[in-house]
């Protein structure tokens, strides 16, 4: 009996370890390539262990693209979008959860429907709108459309409905608090964990966005890190060590943030799916 249980358990562990290995291996490979010279990468068989060329490869990256300005751009855009999403989504979420106004149910339903529509299909007209606004090659083109989204509102509404008791709001109203004061002084402190989760999810998604930035940021001096890294591919003779060292340094900050905050992140994405 004991032997049988151990056997089943080792299969489970084997599965999980193989899965983890496959999930992590490309990161290792990225590091190996980023730290090896072009020659070591192109020999047969290729270098399989980390080398000592990390700094050299990264120096080549700095010759090719404006790495740090692009990193700063990504950071500015992601921070602004995150602040906008946290504020506007929680405000709307509070309204939908706790305030009665005509059409509330229908409007909330409308927001859910917009989550189903793949808005990327409006890519071409969106590009013209941005052109008309004069926002081409301007970070505003990334920030403004991202300031509030349907998923955030939906998620915040669910959270506020559970986390903020009706009685506190009623009591505050009797004391003469305005709705905004209730939101700011009662709701916001009560939903700080939700802010952490939605904030980190939004930050990462904005940081990683590629299709929209590559469409509206064409000038090399106004690129996000994703767009800049892609342009490393445009060189005629591809130097994989150089390309991957750029990719590595663009990926590391985010991986660190994720590993530190992974609890918030994972719970944020799964709650939306299961509930």
């Amino acid at each position: 009996m004991i032997g049988k249980i151990n056997w089943a358990k080792s299969i489970v562990y084997l599965l999980l370890f193989v899965g983890a290995l496959l999930s992590l291996f490309p990161f290792y490979w990225m590091f190996v390539m980023a730290t090896n010279s072009k020659e070591a990468i192109n020999q047969v068989p290729p270098a399989a262990l980390p080398g000592d060329q990390l700094a050299v490869n990264f120096a080549h990256v700095l010759e090719q693209i404006r790495f740090f300005p692009a990193l700063a751009n990504s950071f500015i855009v992601s921070i602004l979008v995150t602040i906008g999403v946290l504020f506007l989504c929680s405000l709307a979420g509070y309204a939908f959860a706790k305030i009665k106004f005509p059409g509330r149910t229908v409007l909330f339903g409308a927001i859910l429907v917009t989550m189903m529509i793949p808005t990327q299909l409006g890519l071409v007209p969106s590009y013209f709108i941005i052109t008309k606004l004069g926002w081409l090659n301007d970070l505003k083109a990334l920030v403004v459309p991202g300031l509030v989204n349907a998923f955030g509102i939906f998620w915040m509404r669910q959270y506020i409905a559970e986390a903020v008791p009706e009685e506190i709001i009623e009591a505050a109203k009797i004391d003469g608090c305005s709705h905004f004061r209730i939101y700011w002084n009662i709701v916001v402190p009560a939903i700080l964990p939700a802010f952490a989760t939605l904030g980190i999810v939004t930050f990462m998604q904005t940081w990683n966005d590629f299709l929209w930035p590559v469409t509206v940021l064409r000038d090399p001096s106004f690129q996000t890190i994703q767009v800049a890294i892609r342009s490393l591919n445009d060189v005629y003779v591809r130097d994989y060590g150089m390309i991957l060292s750029g990719t590595f340094w663009a990926t590391v900050p985010l991986i660190v943030v994720f590993v530190v905050f992974n609890k918030f992140f994972i719970s944020g994405l799964t709650q939306g799916a299961v509930k």
Binding site: A20, S23, L24, F27, M30, M204, L254
Partner: peptide, 12 residues
Amino acid sequence: AFFMPYVTSILA
């Protein structure tokens, strides 16, 4: 470990 690929940008 399983979640790390999803956090990485599609580009990378």
